[in-house]
Design a protein around this nucleic acid. Structure first.
Length: 327
DNA sequence: ATGAGGACCTGCTCGC
DNA sequence: TGCGAGCAGGTCCTCA
């Protein structure tokens, strides 16, 4: 499943193939792929035509392409099974292609493929406006000029004009710190500069929930899914059901180190698994089978103490842990 | 306000 | 051989 390392692999892989290119036509083959875009499939497709890809960016499991002057973005979430593939525009259309973008240069096209259709695409404005306004918005979310309710009611043309007007006040260097409006609530991920360990620890301490649930809470820390949550908890020797408000400071530090390590190592491995024109986010490829210590290893010996790994049911999914190392 | 759980979705595997 | 149940899980929505 695409978690942060897979999404970053896709972002880095796709960036060099699309940046600087202009969309000739967008085609939505399954309306569910753009279900969160209120312009609808036709509106989305029409609004994407003529857009130039400027940058490829990411936060947590979301990735986006800043378009044209950087005032709007094509936002993508890969869900459970999403892929972004670049290739010969004449190759056969697989049945799971949900959206397709061709380019004015006639070169390789971009396809959003998604078997389980949990992923989606949206054309959206950036959330923040000028830097002083950004500071105000951070202090008080309701102060954001482009709040969710406004964005939902506003059409593409108006959003476009508004975003362009606002972005005119921004120095180019500020763009990289902006995130698309629909993901304002997504916390920084542990691999970006904006991530603040102190803030994370403080917010974690205020929560009254289980530590694994907290790791999966994208508004607290982003980029972690079920697999890397289990792996990080195994490394940190923490039980998944441990109440967050009982964690000691040292344990939180250990957990954050484990999270960073597991994401970084997976990113290194994931970065080797695709070639030039085919960007693969298939969960089975590369590191998956080799370097997992807990996830999916029910009954197999723990790498530290040889106690069989246990599987528990949690949130309608599985949690894998060592009953001895992770009390 | 916050936390917990269900819905969404499709392909694969397993057991009868 | 065929079929249905179970499973996989990220995010949003609803309910308590």
């Amino acid at each position: 499943m695409p978690e942060l390392p897979e999404v970053e692999t896709v972002r880095a892989g796709i960036e060099k193939h699309v940046v600087g290119r202009t969309v000739r036509a967008a085609e939505v083959l399954n309306p569910r792929a753009v279900r969160r875009d209120l312009a609808g499939p036709d509106g989305f497709a029409a609004a994407m035509a003529g857009r130039t890809f400027l940058r490829a960016e990411r936060r947590g499991k979301y990735l986006w392409f800043a378009l044209d002057d950087g005032s709007e973005a094509l936002l993508a979430h890969l869900g459970m099974s999403g892929q972004l593939l670049v290739g010969d525009p004449d190759r056969p259309l697989s049945p799971h292609v949900r959206a397709r973008f061709t380019f004015t240069d006639g070169g390789p096209d971009l396809r959003f493929t998604d078997q389980r259709t949990f992923g989606h695409l949206m054309l959206v404005p950036f959330a923040s406006v000028t830097l002083p306004e950004r500071a105000a918005a951070d202090a008080d979310p309701s102060a954001c000029l482009v709040g969710p309710s406004i964005a939902r009611l506003t059409g593409h043309a108006e959003r476009q004009a508004g975003a362009a007007r606002r972005s005119a006040t921004l120095p180019p260097s500020a763009y990289s710190r902006l995130v698309p409006e629909p993901i304002r609530h997504i916390a920084p991920d542990p691999l970006e500069d904006a991530f603040d360990p102190e803030d994370f620890a403080a917010r974690l301490a205020r929560k009254k929930t289980q530590v694994k649930r907290a790791l999966l809470d994208q508004s607290l820390i982003s980029g972690i899914g079920n697999i890397y949550a289990d792996e990080a908890l195994w490394r940190a020797k923490l039980h998944w059901a441990r109440p967050t408000d009982t964690l000691e400071r040292g344990e939180v530090s250990r957990l954050l180190d484990a999270v960073r390590d597991v994401l970084t190592e997976a990113l290194k491995a994931g970065g080797t698994s695709f070639d030039a024109l085919y960007v693969n986010v298939n969960g089975e490829s590369g590191y998956f089978d080799r370097s997992l210590n807990a996830y999916g290893r029910e009954g197999e010996p723990c790498g530290r103490c040889a106690t069989p790994i246990r599987r528990d049911s949690f949130m309608n999914r599985s949690s894998y842990s060592c009953p001895r190392c992770q009390k």
